[in-house]
Design a protein around this nucleic acid. Structure first.
Lengths: 216, 216
DNA sequence: GTTTGTGAAGGATTTCACAGCA
DNA sequence: TGCTGTGAAATCCTTCACAAAC
């Protein structure tokens, strides 16, 4: 067993492109909305029309994971939604912590859209002595010094960063050190993260700035 | 001058890829942060380190628009930021309207990050008779029936959609009919827009959902 | 010596187009 | 007939690598 063989990578199948992973939640969202409008079957054509993309791309994306459709019919809506949720790890709940309980952090913990999708914010942190100890949206705000312990004790897998820009990198470093591998960053900077950590930014200003080019 | 020549398309230069347009605001953001830390020059290597991307990609992106660097030295930070802002249409202000003055709309109009970047929210709309007429963050909330007139009168170029999901497509259609070409959509659906209209979505749930795949 | 700007090469993603199945 | 799943082709995007400029 000394040398590499062509079959050494059986089971380590070629990784699914990142763009594909980012599109699957869109499919889940459309499917769930489509099923509540009473339809059982959907074709890649219809899915594509809803998402303004080509049917071929949808079929190709799905083919990375299996064969979910029936020729001549299309896809069973509920079945496909379930499969995709399972693939994405969305058929379970995830614990999250918010760091930074200023205006933005308060809005985030009060936002009612996370829990129905399985994202439970179960801890809140802040650096300020005035805010630590307060209860906000039912969460007792903790000091950032307790981050690592709480992440471990409460099985927190997701960090949501809502601190001001000049504290953001420090906080992200602390989350990484605590073992967090998924970070949602609301601070308007491009943070440094090591390989193996996924980070996504929410910055409405960046979104606006990328649109003015077309109307300039 | 009957037939096409190789130079017929002078001036209709090949369009800049959309991905490139989406990265330019990132460069602007880094440059502005870099200049406030006292540096005059920056290399594509340094820019790349900040953004976790390759120097070659940055140089290639910039080359779509001109030659902004000096060999052996790098880029003048302030100059490059200015050029990019001008290219993107960010060296001016833009008027925006928010539609939907519930929890989310109130948070958006109260967010202090837009104005410093030249995005001025100067009108607010809602469908509910109870909310119309109220003053929120200094804005008199108008009825949606006044949308088209106000867009014209106040030279509004950007629509920000913060209505509940079941009203979102209607509102987007109304914005399009009013002549709006840039829409920032906070509602969790994939809306239909005609060619020539740019729309960007802000959906933190989608961002979270695309990360769980990697920690599943 | 350093770093840009850019053709050419390489790699990734999308679309085509059709065999195969219901 | 209708629509999927998928190799092959086409397109798009990134990286390489080096001449030219400072």
């Amino acid at each position: 067993m000394a040398t590499s063989t062509p079959n050494d990578n059986l089971g380590s199948e070629s990784p699914v492109p990142e763009v594909v992973i980012q599109r699957l939640p869109l499919y889940v969202r459309v499917l769930s909305q489509f099923s509540s409008s009473g339809n059982d079957l959907i074709s890649s054509e219809q899915l594509g029309a809803h998402l303004q993309m080509t049917p071929a791309q949808i079929r190709k994306d799905l083919s990375y994971f299996g064969r979910f459709g029936k020729q001549g019919r299309g896809y069973d809506v509920a079945m496909l939604e379930g499969e995709l949720r399972s693939i994405m790890g969305l058929n379970r709940t995830w614990n999250a912590a918010v760091i930074g309980m200023g205006r933005l952090g308060r809005a985030v913990v009060a936002y009612p859209g996370f829990a129905p999708e399985g994202f439970n914010i179960i801890a809140a942190f802040d650096a300020s002595a005035e805010i630590v100890g307060q209860t906000i949206s039912g969460l007792a705000v903790q000091s950032i010094s307790q981050l690592t312990d709480t992440v471990k004790n409460l099985d927190i897998k997701i960090g949501i960063v809502t601190v001001p820009i000049d504290h953001a990198q420090k906080v992200i470093d602390a989350l990484v050190k605590a073992g967090i591998k998924s970070i949602l960053n609301y601070a308007p900077l491009s943070p440094q993260v090591p390989e193996g950590v996924t980070i996504r930014g929410i910055d409405p200003v960046l979104s606006l700035q990328s649109m003015t080019y077309y109307i300039r």
